[in-house]
């Protein structure tokens, strides 16, 4: 195991707690808005760590750029999805928790 393998593994493993906390939020938070809040933020950070770790692990610039593109696409998709789900929920008259 060379240095970039170790560094890559550490970065990928650093992403896992964020996935875990996002999933915990999805399961435990009381309504759709707080769940979106938990998922859309933590999953993006987690995937960022995983992609960065895999890019370092591969040690190739082209692979790194592809992983960066995957992460950016996920950012766009999760932001758009969260916004659309939130707007739909509001339009259907679902009251935010505690309001």
């Amino acid at each position: 195991m060379s240095l970039n393998h170790w560094l890559g593994a550490v970065l990928v493993i650093s992403g896992l707690p964020f996935f875990f906390l996002g999933t915990l939020g999805l399961l435990r938070f009381p309504d759709v808005y707080t769940r979106l809040h938990a998922l859309a933020k933590s999953d993006n950070v987690a995937l960022g760590f995983v992609c960065l770790g895999l890019a370092v692990y591969s040690g190739s610039l082209i692979t790194g750029l592809k992983l960066l593109l995957i992460w950016l696409l996920m950012l766009v998709a999760s932001a758009a999805g969260a916004s659309l789900i939130g707007r739909t929920a509001l339009a259907r008259g679902i009251k935010p928790w505690g309001v």
Partner: peptide
Amino acid sequence: QAIISPVLPALGRIL
């Protein structure tokens, strides 16, 4: 349209 949102057209244009 059920919800008027600028997100969907923008998403279509970007993607």
